[in-house]
Write a protein that binds this DNA or RNA. Structure first.
Lengths: 240, 240
DNA sequence: AAGTGGTCTAGACCACGGC
DNA sequence: CCGTGGTCTAGACCACTTC
């Protein structure tokens, strides 16, 4: 009597989803006890190891905490540190709405340094998009993104003004972004940047250069971001 | 015939250690195939699930990659992103040796903002240590650390000049640091900072404020770091 | 076809926490 | 004491990759 499968979804995932649903619905609040392994096994007609596997997965994702001898409990809501999020998502997670202005959108031919960072041959045609990020109608960042023009044909300025680049890539080109390596330092505003960001010349800016990789491991985007340090700071969590 | 235990060490951990040992010894190089689940089970006289558990753990830690239908392989050496390291450790990981100079070491009484960040009552006596960090005899950072003077009695300037603060805390006070939450932005050097760091006044600096937590979850250190952006940049990896 | 990892069973004993 | 999570067994079938 083997087949515990339904719909091709593994049993442990169905169990995880059923728990996650109850957390999202607010039926289970942080600190509340989740069904024990044995209860889950009984409720879902599944062996103990399978129920364990489900809980272990949720623990890895930080959704629950397991305490030996005591039980499994919903973990406190976590701030999403070190999460790769689009501009839109970042603001949404803080309950804000922002806007963007495309400053320029051009194709460049020779930018060997950036091609190299994207692991492309040095003569590759690159799309270069400069966007000013605004929060409550005040500029706080200038982001310049580079991506292969041949890999993403038809990515027009108009489409970028409507939709976020992340969702455009995911919806239209089937590219799922997975992680980003970032190099962070400080710089100061030159004349042009100062004007765009409405800060005095020489004002300190946070500079973030990121290479964003797709889930297949390809370097997909190179982003140079300049952030007004008076209106933005980066939150990071590091582990020992 | 249950007891697969020896020395109280779980079987899956013994298996992990035996694999890790072979990796560290260089017998297994990145890309090499690790024994399969079935082989491990046979070699260690253990069930398949236990061998699986061992490999799954190593995969979570990033030591191996598992490919369905193909095998388990030693993962490429990873740069340690988002790792909380002491100044000494950071330099050592790049093969460098640095030095520190204690600029000041005082006890302060009233610093409600910092006490609050450390979850201490606002009148608590705090130890405040200012250290200049040098690499190849040139200054590149000024770090100011605050910690409870009562929780860490006898932490003298002399001891800090000999040893790293991290190892001092771990060895002498049994405090294991676990993670840090950091807030990163940019600022510019005022007169005093500019002198200490040997940069022109107004030079852009990377500012990192971190609250470092012990493994028991207590906020233990508050560190304000100012980094010369021409000599230091922060590397971060973010995940979707 | 052979070998791999992924899922799963139906039990077992142990170590720990709270009552 | 009882219930919890932690470890473990000795198998099974499936999905996938490689040859």
């Amino acid at each position: 009597m083997p087949p515990t499968r339904q719909n091709g979804t593994p049993a442990y995932k169905r169990i995880q989803e059923s728990i996650l649903k109850r957390i999202e619905a607010g039926q289970l609040k942080p600190g509340d006890a989740v069904d024990s392994e044995r209860e889950l096994a009984r409720l879902h007609s599944v062996s103990l190891m399978t129920a364990r596997h489900a809980l272990a997965g949720l623990e890895r994702e930080g959704m629950v905490e397991r305490r030996r001898g005591s039980g499994t409990f919903v973990a406190p809501p976590k701030i999403h540190f070190n999460k790769l999020m689009s501009f839109t998502e970042q603001l949404a997670s803080r309950g804000l709405v922002g806007s963007s202005r495309v400053v320029s959108c051009t194709i460049i031919e020779e930018q060997p340094e950036i091609s190299a960072r994207l692991a492309l041959p040095s003569g590759t045609r690159l799309l270069r998009i400069e966007r000013l990020r605004l929060g409550s109608d005040e500029p706080f960042a200038l982001e310049t993104v580079y991506l292969s023009a041949t890999a993403f044909p038809g990515l027009t300025r108009a489409r970028l003004e409507r939709s976020s680049l992340f969702s455009e890539l995911e919806r239209e080109y089937g590219v799922n972004l997975a992680h980003a390596d970032e190099e962070i330092d400080a710089t100061s505003a030159d004349h042009r940047i100062a004007d765009l960001l409405c800060v005095p010349r020489g004002a300190p800016l946070l500079r973030i250069r990121q290479v964003i990789f797709s889930s297949s491991g390809e370097a997909t985007l190179y982003v140079l971001g300049l952030y007004r340090s008076d209106r933005h700071s980066l939150l990071i969590r590091r582990f020992r």
